[in-house]
Amino acid sequence: MKSNNLKAYLLLMPSLILAGVFSFFPLAKSIIGSFCTISQQGEIIGFAGLDNYISLFSDKAFVSSIGHTLLFLVIFLPLNTLLILLAAVLTRRKEKHTAIAECIFLTPMAISLSSMALIFREIFRGRISIINRLFSMDIPWLESPDYAIAVLAFLGVFLDFGIDYILLLSSFRKIDKSIIEAAAIDGAGDLRTLFMIELPEARPMLAVIVFLAIKDAVMISAPVMILTAGGPFRSTETIMYYYYLEAFRSGNHGAETSIATLMAAFSGLMVLALAKWRKHDEIC
């Protein structure tokens, strides 16, 4: 038993070392740093107590960034889940032409994040944008705070679509066909089979997709950077974009370490919630 344990730890060692060096050590450094005054050059110059956190929450822009992130989440999460569910449900049975639809739905995976964000920027740029021309509209998509966050959410859906679709589709196709066939023999229609058998079977994967979407929404930064740069009028500044500005543009290490600590705590809570949910789901 003991030698088995040793073997297991030895096998885990490379991952533990990597996690220690690249995750836990920087995290510990951030947590300590968040209670210290750090110079622009990155040197700890004194103990700050809670000053960094007080300063962070005194900044209206940071508080606003939490609001913007939540707004993004509220738009993105249902839209993302519904569209992926719809696409996966429609193509869950392999038929003659589903390969074409699968190819279309998987296309976003072939386009890099930055390329897609740049394409979106051109499509929605200004009142004489491509989208306005196509549909004879006069909407200031990226110029108006209300629309800009919606465009950002739409871009988010597009970026996540491919990977989420393939996960859910594979989950649907993994379902034991004999159960579905038995249900059909018993007279269950397509809708009844979907709601009573297939969706409950795909629920664990759907939960993973939802948790991934929440993680992506809370961590969103690069699409903001390219599509809106936080604008117009700071209306699309999310928490992580705010972090980027403070850490990389302003060299404000107090804000940087405080946000890193808060976000790590949030991620920890999310992982715990997912683990608890999965445990609960297994019991049920």
Binding site: G230, G231, F233, R234, L245, R249, S250, N252
Partner: peptide, 13 residues
């Protein structure tokens, strides 16, 4: 100024 980028956008806001 420090945080020039943030100040830039706050002026606009």
């Amino acid at each position: 100024m420090p945080s020039g980028y943030q100040i830039y956008h706050t002026y606009q806001s």
